[in-house]
């Protein structure tokens, strides 16, 4: 029944390939630029860093600094902050499009009526949710490949450079990030949670809308709408203006892969978990009533 499996999940595989190609292209572009910079730095070093030069005390004449490979972290951030991944929208689309395809195909077929006489509704419901969640596996595989690839090219022993011009200052990160394993696990977990949040929202939308294009557009708009509400309503108006606190910067469901941990790693993780739980509850309540699901399928 491989052909049946392919017909259900070919979009998941396509999303994996697109994500992988975009990531490789993005990393390759960044890496080529990095090598050009390195070459230019060495030319400048040869040209300006002679004995008695006025520039000897500047970083441009510190051979160790200019010849250092970029850190793993820096390379990853640059890869996912390229034009290929504008504001994390690429990831959102790569997650929701295959799930919308899978769900609309299922609901439009009406096969649920035949399944309901063969297994309990709770099993059908959980199967539907788990099969939708399965779209994170290509994403996880892709991330693992990108991590592996990036670590081969960069200084994989450290996440941050010991003497960074960019890393720590730019992101205000705690020293916890100096542990590569901790960083990788944290990055994986938060991104998986964000991807599951997108899938939960897609499941919620597809409960009512069974047209692929309409469901995809509404899912996307809903995710962007939630993001705007969190950024403008919750963070800007409530947390920052009224409460005068700064942790609201974590309230962002789109910057998982582009990385913004300005409010701390714990804050981002707590927010991702909270959003996952809230959106799961949304799915739980919207799929609770078997009769309503059946009636929605009958309207087709």
């Amino acid at each position: 029944m491989f052909s049946v499996w392919i017909k259900n999940y070919w979009m998941y595989l396509l999303a994996f390939l697109v994500f992988l190609i975009l990531s490789i292209y993005s990393f390759a572009s960044y890496w080529a630029q990095e090598n050009r910079n390195l070459e230019q730095n060495l030319i400048n070093y040869e040209k300006y860093c002679y004995e008695g030069s006025e520039l000897l005390d500047y970083p441009v004449c510190d051979y160790e600094t200019i010849s250092k490979k970029p850190s793993f972290f820096y390379s990853l951030i640059m890869t996912f902050n390229s034009d290929m991944f504008p504001k994390g929208f690429t990831l959102v689309m790569l997650v929701i499009i295959p799930v919308c395809y899978f769900l609309t195909r299922y609901f439009n077929s009406g096969i649920i009526f035949n399944e309901l006489t063969r297994k309990p509704y709770s099993k059908i419901k959980h199967g539907l949710i788990l099969k939708s969640y399965a779209n994170i596996f290509p994403f996880i595989m892709c991330m693992a490949l990108i991590f592996l690839g990036t670590s081969l090219f960069t200084d994989s022993a450290t996440i941050l450079n010991p003497d960074p011009l960019f890393d720590k200052e730019y992101l205000s990160l705690s020293s916890e990030l100096d542990n590569p394993i901790f960083f990788i696990v944290w990055y994986f977990v938060t991104n998986i949670l964000y991807a599951l949040v997108y899938i939960n929202i897609t499941l919620f939308v597809n409960r009512k809308y069974h047209n692929f294009f309409i469901a995809t557009i509404i899912s996307f708009v809903t995710i962007v709408g939630i993001e705007l509400f969190l950024e403008l309503g919750v963070d800007l108006l409530f947390v920052t203006t009224i409460l005068k606190l700064d942790f609201g910067v974590s309230f962002n469901i789109l910057n998982g892969i582009t990385f913004n941990a300005a409010a701390g790693l714990g804050g981002v993780l707590a927010f991702a978990i909270t959003m996952f739980v809230l959106t799961y509850l949304l799915v739980y309540f919207s799929y609770r009533n078997k009769e309503k699901i059946i009636m929605d399928c009958e309207e087709l």
Partner: peptide
């Protein structure tokens, strides 16, 4: 009415 996957 019967309900099945059209492409199978």
């Amino acid at each position: 009415h019967p309900s099945f996957f059209g492409d199978l």
